[in-house]
């Protein structure tokens, strides 16, 4: 069972959750109040939903050995556009206004994704550079959209997206779960996942096998931007306002981290959507933990960094083997040093 690729991420998540019980005995308690579910676990899922979405898109981008740094900016732009549209409308609370805002925000997100996709897949710019452009410029665009102000909206239907409840659960959780499910069906029930892994694993061989990488790579940047757009709607809806400066700030780094924690290699190829979800939950749990155990705010990032390093080491088979050997000393033992199974080649 320890061989399963999701084993260690799951262990880490479980350990983090258990650690919280020490500080907050009723950490696992879930109450029903006014027909809504409440509890720390629900909060983690609820506030983690935007990160799960962004990380989901990031997973597919990373699978093609790319990276998308612009998702944070896309989050900000999508939220800003939606809020501006609603606040400027005659009837902010009408479903039509909200649907229009959603369509506008996601449409623009898709355009941003298309820009990334064209730059990477057609023009051949390195992904980190191509998306860095939008990462930097996008914040400025978000500021322009909101005129440098925080735009607040009062709209019940819009509030539903990030802050509302449906069937006792926060709507954001249900929506994120649906997207995860759909994405995994889309990649694993069609050949999309295989072709993406092939393109990411060996682009030259993939071309010679007749795979049209341009379209596939363009597609994942579109998907990543769309996910970021939805995340932007959730974030701005949850606080009923759009902050071009701070919405989605550094979410690209959290998303990349979530992907890596979930066991997908930054060099591309094999990816794991389940791993990414667990990775995103680890990061969100960590944020929650920081508050519940009362770590001073100025040292939160340092604390987070240590946990992340620890998690990465625990997941590394080479490190675990080393640690095991150290423990086995001074007896000579069986001289076993299992290397990463992925790096071995059998025979001549």
């Amino acid at each position: 069972m320890t061989k399963h690729r999701l084993f260690w991420p799951a262990v880490v998540l479980a350990a983090l959750l258990l650690a919280n019980v020490v500080f907050t005995p009723d950490f696992f308690a879930i109450r029903i109040k006014d027909g809504h579910l409440y509890g720390s676990l629900i909060d983690i899922l609820h506030f983690g939903a935007p990160l799960i979405l962004v990380a989901l898109g990031m997973t597919l981008v990373i699978a093609t050995s790319g990276i998308d740094l612009s998702v944070g900016s896309t989050v900000a732009i999508a939220g800003a556009l939606a809020c501006l549209h609603i606040s400027g409308a005659a009837d902010p609370a009408s479903p039509a206004t909200v649907l229009g805002a959603v369509a506008l925000a996601l449409g623009v997100a898709l355009v941003l994704g298309a820009v990334n996709g064209v730059l990477v897949a057609r023009v051949g710019v390195q992904p980190i550079i191509a998306t860095l452009i939008l990462m930097v410029a996008g914040r400025g665009v978000a500021q322009l959209v909101t005129d440098g102000q925080i735009v607040t909206v009062t709209s019940e239907p819009y509030k539903l997206i990030g802050g509302g409840y449906w069937l006792t659960m926060p709507f954001a959780i249900l929506f994120a779960a649906a997207v995860v499910l759909l994405t995994s069906l889309l990649t694993r029930r069609t050949a999309l996942g295989l072709l993406l892994e092939s393109v990411g694993g060996n682009p030259v061989a993939s071309r010679l096998a007749g795979i049209r990488a341009t379209g596939l790579i363009g597609l994942v940047y579109l998907f990543s931007a769309l996910c970021a757009g939805v995340a932007g709607l959730m974030i701005s809806s949850n606080v009923s306002s759009a902050d071009g400066n701070n919405a989605g700030l550094w979410i690209e780094l959290d998303a990349i981290l979530a992907v890596v924690l979930g066991g997908t290699s930054l060099t591309g190829g094999r990816f794991s959507l389940g791993g990414t979800v667990i990775g995103a939950l680890i990061i969100q749990t960590l944020s929650t933990t920081v508050y519940t155990i009362g770590i001073p705010p100025e040292t939160t990032l340092v604390f987070k960094a240590f946990v992340v390093i620890a998690v990465c080491l625990i997941q590394s088979p080479a490190f675990r083997a080393k640690a095991a050997r150290r423990r086995a000393r001074p007896g000579r033992g069986t001289a076993s040093r299992p290397l990463t199974p992925e790096n071995t080649e059998v025979g001549a």
Partner: peptide, 25 residues
């Protein structure tokens, strides 16, 4: 470098060209 995708399985490598020709859908 030009033939196989090392981190994919034997099965996946064998069906790769056929699958690419059929398209991902």
């Amino acid at each position: 470098t030009e033939g196989l995708v090392g981190e994919l399985t034997v099965r996946e490598n064998i069906v790769l060209a056929l699958q690419a020709a059929r398209g991902w859908l």
